[in-house]
């Protein structure tokens, strides 16, 4: 299982490298002056900050696969027999899963922060705290989905599709100024937008952000709360009926 994770970790780091050192740099040479302006003077930094948030998202979503693996190994029964309430169990899972991926991605976040240049440590602290909560929320969401979908394959496909939309309908890769209005309207409710915006704000990028930092933090807190709650409800419903088999 840990081996499994190491493997994922190394591949993800390579993916990150390709995104930054290849895609990011090349696209940066293509973009015109007007793009550089709305992204705070440097599209490359804007992009690097976005891609690190994407990475945090995709690493955290991984916890859903653990749920299936546990069910396959019968570990679900063990977890349910432990002397803790269902709420503590789900919260523990979401926090544990969020913390794990946050720690994995943290070194890359620092690389990006160093790249951009650290200006205001206080802002960075706020941004990192918000990203921390964001990771809990994503873990809660992944657990909820894993609980509500019986088939491992379907979960896999759904995550793929969800990934395509949630990443592309956010400000992780491009500034809102270039989005068609309908897309921008949807992007402003996307947790990935909140997370990418707050990270850029924390890093001191003068980019044109879709939301204010307060809205971002608020959005992340709402996202986190809703999915933790849903996670608990689904755990209760599905598992106590023995429906995980």
């Amino acid at each position: 299982m840990f081996l499994h994770y190491k493997f994922v970790l190394i591949l993800r780091a390579l993916w990150f490298l390709a995104q930054i050192a290849l895609f990011g740099l090349i696209v940066n040479r293509m973009v015109k002056e007007e793009v550089q302006v709305v992204t705070g003077g440097n599209y490359f930094y804007f992009y690097a900050a976005g891609i690190v948030v994407t990475l945090l998202y995709s690493m955290t979503v991984f916890i859903g696969y653990d749920i299936y693996e546990e069910a396959d190994h019968g570990v679900t029964e063990y977890l349910l027999s432990l002397p803790v309430s269902r709420r503590e169990l789900v919260l523990g899972r979401a926090i544990g899963g969020g913390l794990r991926s946050f720690l994995y991605v943290a070194p890359l976040m620092f690389v990006v922060l160093l790249l951009i240049g650290i200006t205001d440590p206080f802002r960075i602290l706020i941004a990192l705290t918000a990203l921390f909560l964001f990771a809990f929320g994503v873990a809660g969401m992944s657990i909820t989905l894993a609980m509500s979908i019986k088939s491992h394959d379907r979960f896999d496909i759904l995550l793929g599709v969800l990934n395509a939309f949630i990443v592309r309908l956010s400000t992780t890769m491009y500034p809102v100024a270039f989005m068609p209005p309908q897309y921008a309207a949807m992007a402003q409710f996307n947790p990935l937008t909140f997370a990418a915006d707050i990270f850029r704000w924390g890093a001191g990028l003068e980019a044109v952000l879709l939301t204010s930092p307060f809205v971002s933090v608020f959005g992340i807190v709402v996202f986190f709360s809703v999915f933790t709650f849903l996670g608990i409800v689904f755990y209760e419903k599905r598992l106590e009926g023995g429906g995980w088999r």
Binding site: M1, F2, D66, E69, E70, G74, V75, E77, Y78, S81
Partner: peptide, 8 residues
């Protein structure tokens, strides 16, 4: 448990 529960 009857079947040892030892995973992650």
């Amino acid at each position: 448990f009857q079947e040892p529960k030892l995973m992650w």
